[in-house]
């Protein structure tokens, strides 16, 4: 049996919460859709760190499974998001989330 060395889980959760808040600040503040996607990745990673921290705290592998599912969802989201960015760039639309306020091509 392995005990948890080093800091308690609450330290990991503090890092996770700070990462989530940083990512949400980027999503709300930045206007370049690429950087908004990168900030979204930070938010997902903050959630993943919390999941894995709780998984270790409870000694239950379900949290790690959930983190892997989140990773797959993040990869899918990046595929669709980058596809949209490339499609917008081909139509010569300004890449600014404040100006992308209509879905009509």
């Amino acid at each position: 049996m392995i005990a948890l060395l080093g800091p308690e889980i609450s330290w990991y959760l503090a890092v996770a919460g700070f990462l989530f808040a940083t990512g949400s600040l980027g999503v709300l503040l930045r206007r370049n859709p690429l950087i908004v996607l990168l900030s979204l990745e930070i938010m997902l990673n903050g959630a993943n760190l919390a999941l894995i921290g709780f998984s270790r705290n409870l000694g239950d592998g379900g949290g790690q499974i959930f983190a892997l599912a989140v990773m797959a969802v993040a990869a899918s989201e990046v595929v669709v998001g980058l596809g949209l960015v490339v499609a917008l760039n081909r139509k010569r639309v300004t890449l600014d989330v404040d100006r992308l306020n209509t879905l009509r091509g």
């Binding site: 948890l4 790690q64 990869a75």
Partner: peptide
């Protein structure tokens, strides 16, 4: 950090999937 939390497989998947595939696409 994942390695410190005994999540070896998730850490490896993180490096392979995120830092490898997703970031190269970005």
């Amino acid at each position: 950090l994942y390695l410190l939390l005994n999540a070896e497989f998730v850490a490896a998947a993180q490096v392979l999937v995120y830092a490898g595939a997703v970031m190269v696409m970005f």
